[in-house]
Design a protein around this nucleic acid. Structure first.
Lengths: 217, 217
DNA sequence: TATTTTTTTTAGATAAACCTAAACAGTATC
DNA sequence: GATACTGTTTAGGTTTATCTAAAAAAAATA
């Protein structure tokens, strides 16, 4: 049985190795965990002894098969709680993260099973991120960053890459949410910004940075 | 901000001083917390420095006004989560305690406020124990043990004294739950057992022991 | 290739929550 | 009132997760 802290490290390692380099460096992990490289070295050695990560000195870390499953179960809990908070308790999607960060560590398989059922077995969280099942399996879906599409493309927003408050507030302001239908009207070559129409009503221009953070399907 | 462990000590001190002696002894607290008297001494000194308990060496402990409010807020969270587990996630009332023991330490005033609202501002948990408000105030209610009533009395079950699995299973079997309407048809003087009617439908006989553990209002 | 810089690890310390063993305070018994 | 007993506290040690400072390894640069 892993501690809260160990679970959080595992989640961070899984997350980092899923978004870039194959081996997660000590410094990157220290930054992600808001701690020092020295602390990371200690913890990683401990996780390695528990066989939930693969680790060789100076070579970075990666989750083991067992560690990956543990990380995915924590992610599952996190995302199910986010659905609960938004759908049942009327939280805004930018208010849920800190609370879900706590709730994800509650240990009770029955609780998660019942919560899943209560929520109607959701497959995506309020940010559009997929919810793995208890075996760590995702319901696969093809998706594409808005910034990768061509003029004339139409798609539905299924996820956002950046879950930070600032970005979500911006999306609320311009009227984009999960489920919004977006049509690409024009792409400005100069800076990669895009003219888009939201739900066939409102037309706006979004920067390349914004377009990079919106997933369509 | 208190740690999980400190919150649990505070809850235990509050609980013990509310059910017996005025000053809680080190040994009693050690037993309640499943730890050693030495550990209790350490912790109590620490809580005293934080001014959440009153403590003089060799004289036992008691919660301070501030400590009492903290303890009551933890109890509030515990009981609200119990209501959630039973009402929304279909837990049996004898399955909720361990999970609520974890959930009670989640720190988010907004979460508790919204949960309270979602549950319809319940005043009692599934065992009939009263839920304090955020200021530690209980909604007072007059209640009476079934065993203390007279023939002809009608009342609603508002609480059970014994929350053990065996008793709760028995109540489920005979069809008594919180909210059941009970009419006292006859009292057998010989052993104090009672003939009662449940919800104006089913008539059964309950022993004095059972009647002692059911609260009516 | 030698040297500098960056990254990573180790060494040694700290705080929280616990432990065992020993000392001390308070109470009961003779 | 001295002695024994029980209850409580202190002393010293452990584990977990952190830190700073220093050492070691790897990478970058001259």
């Amino acid at each position: 049985m892993l501690s809260f802290v160990e679970e959080n490290y595992l989640k961070a390692i899984y997350h980092l190795s899923n978004s870039g380099a194959e081996a997660v460096t000590t410094n990157a992990l220290a930054e992600e965990m808001h701690t020092t490289p020295a602390s990371v070295s200690d913890m990683v050695r401990k996780l390695s002894k528990k066989e939930v990560v693969h680790y060789k000195k100076y070579q970075g870390v990666n989750v083991s098969e067992e560690g990956k499953l543990i990380a995915l179960r924590v992610i599952r809990k996190h995302r199910l709680w986010e659905v609960f908070l938004v759908q049942k308790l009327d939280f805004n999607w930018d208010e849920v993260h800190d609370v879900a960060e706590q709730l994800e560590h509650i240990k009770s398989p029955l609780l998660i099973q019942r919560l899943d059922e209560f929520l109607g077995f959701p497959k995506y969280d309020p940010h559009g991120d997929p919810i793995p099942d208890e075996n760590g399996q995702f319901t696969e879906s093809k998706r594409e960053a808005l910034s990768n599409t061509e003029t004339g493309t139409t798609g539905v927003v299924v996820a956002v890459e950046d879950s930070g408050t600032a970005f979500l507030k911006y999306l609320d302001k311009v009227g984009i949410s999960i489920g919004s239908k977006i049509t690409v009207d024009d792409i400005i070559e100069f800076d990669g910004s895009m003219d888009i129409t939201i739900d066939q009503k409102k037309s706006i221009t979004v920067s390349k940075t914004v377009a990079n953070n919106i997933w369509l399907a």
